[in-house]
Every structure is written in structure tokens, then in C-alpha cells.
Simulated assay, not measured.
Amino acid sequence: MRRRRRCCTWTLALLLALLFAGCGRVETVPEDREVPPLETEQEETEEPVPETPAAPNALTAEEIIRVNEAFAPFFERGDGLYTNPTCSFFTAYYKRPEDLDLVEFLRYFGLGSGGPAEDGPEFEALKAAEGWPFHVDHLDQMPVPIHKYSRADVDAYLEEHAGITTADLTTFPASSADLLYLPEYDAFYNFTSDAGPGVFICENGWREGDLLILTGGGEELTLEETEAGRYLFRSFLPLERET
């Protein structure tokens, strides 16, 4: 945060220096150059274009900066760089939280733990699960890491940030190569080896009652403020384009 403020201050100072470098400079006309007479009449006049008024209850530039800081896809912690789990709400579109695509939501969730620590019942259950995509006999032969997400942890996160649990989802995904679910361990598993969290960059925003509507990159994100002053995710949709 401190680094960004210093950078912005330097940039602003540079822009001001460039702007005011020309102030006070007067262009003179060479003596051999004829100065055209001033026109006193204009055949055509153009009406000034009215400025587009700001939306009622629009966010300030500072508030938009804070929104984008909260939605940054990565954050630093003492021991490394981590994906921001909040960005999982930007991996697929939904009209309401219950329509979340859990496969995409968990693909780069960032709050999972490692899978089985060794060959054993859990790894054997994974190999026997429908959709298991690998041809390996032992855990140390896995070409990519296994990420395990306790359903209780996923439910707690969804309830905190969207007011729902996985039981409220309109579609509960069947086990597949993209996301396995083991009922006996009540956990989800996926196998991503890269980091590609969802991205949303806010450009404009305004309040409508309890709703906070944010737009940017051709997308619209709607949050709802609770009585406790927190915000819940309500929808994430592409902006309708005028034809």
C-alpha cells in the first residue's frame, strides 16, 4: 500500500511538472508573418456538449481504488504469494449466488489443503472415484498436486461471503476430472498446477439502497450490504451491449 501511494505521488508530480512547464510561455509572431484579423462573426456555432452527470451515489475514485485492492487476484504474505479466494466469485457468471458454478469456483480457490499425505485409504478412494483422470498407482507418481477442500470449509466461506452453502446450489457437480467429491471424506478435490484466479477490475460503481453495483471490463458485479456493514456477493454478469 505504501509503495503504491509513493508511485502515484511521483506520477502526479511528474504530470504537474509537465503541465506547468508550458505555463507563462508566450508564442510571438514573426515580424514578416501577417496576423489574420480577428473574426467577429461565426457562420455556424456549435452548442456545447453537456457533461454526463455522475450517477447518484457514485463511488469516489478513492473508493474504487479500495475496491480494486480488495479484489486483487494475488496477495503477499510473509512466506509467499497467495491467490485471493474472493476472486473465485469472478470465475463464472451467475444471476444469484445459488447459481454459482462450483467447479469453476474451486478451480483456483486458494484455501485448500494438500490431498492425501501418503498412499492409503483416501488415495485409493480417489483412484476409484468416477472421473479420476490419472493412470498412477502411487501418490508420488502424481504429475500435478492434489488440492483438497473440506466441504465444511467451503460452506463456511460461501455463507460468510454469499449467504449460502453448497446445499443451496442449484447444481451440485457430479465427480469429474475437474472436481472430484468423496462423500466418505465430505471433501472436494481438484488438480490444478498453475494459478489463474478470476479477475474483476472496477471502473465505476454506485449504490442503490443496500446494493453496491460495480462495473468494469464489460461486466457487472452486485454486492449487498448487510446490517452489520459487510457485503455479500449477489450476482456477476456480462453487461448488456447496446446494438
Rank of each mutant, 00 (worst) to 15 (best):
R3T: 12
C8A: 13
F20L: 13
F20H: 05
G24E: 05
G24W: 08
V26S: 07
V26M: 07
P30T: 05
P30C: 03
E31H: 08
E41C: 04
E46C: 03
T52G: 06
T52E: 15
P53H: 05
A55F: 08
N57H: 10
N68Q: 06
G78I: 00
D79A: 14
L81Q: 10
Y82F: 15
T86W: 06
F89C: 05
F90W: 09
F90V: 03
P97S: 05
D99G: 08
F105T: 10
L106I: 10
R107H: 10
A117V: 11
D119S: 01
F123Y: 03
L126W: 00
L126E: 00
F134K: 02
D140R: 10
Q141H: 11
Y157I: 02
D168C: 03
L169D: 09
P173S: 08
P173A: 07
A174W: 00
Y181S: 04
Y181H: 08
L182N: 12
E184N: 15
Y185N: 15
D186G: 06
A187Q: 10
N190W: 02
F191I: 06
G196M: 13
E203M: 05
E203G: 06
R207E: 05
R207G: 01
R207W: 11
G209H: 07
L211K: 13
L214G: 01
G217R: 08
E219N: 09
T222S: 05
E227I: 04
G229Q: 11
L232V: 09
S235E: 08
E242L: 15
T243R: 15
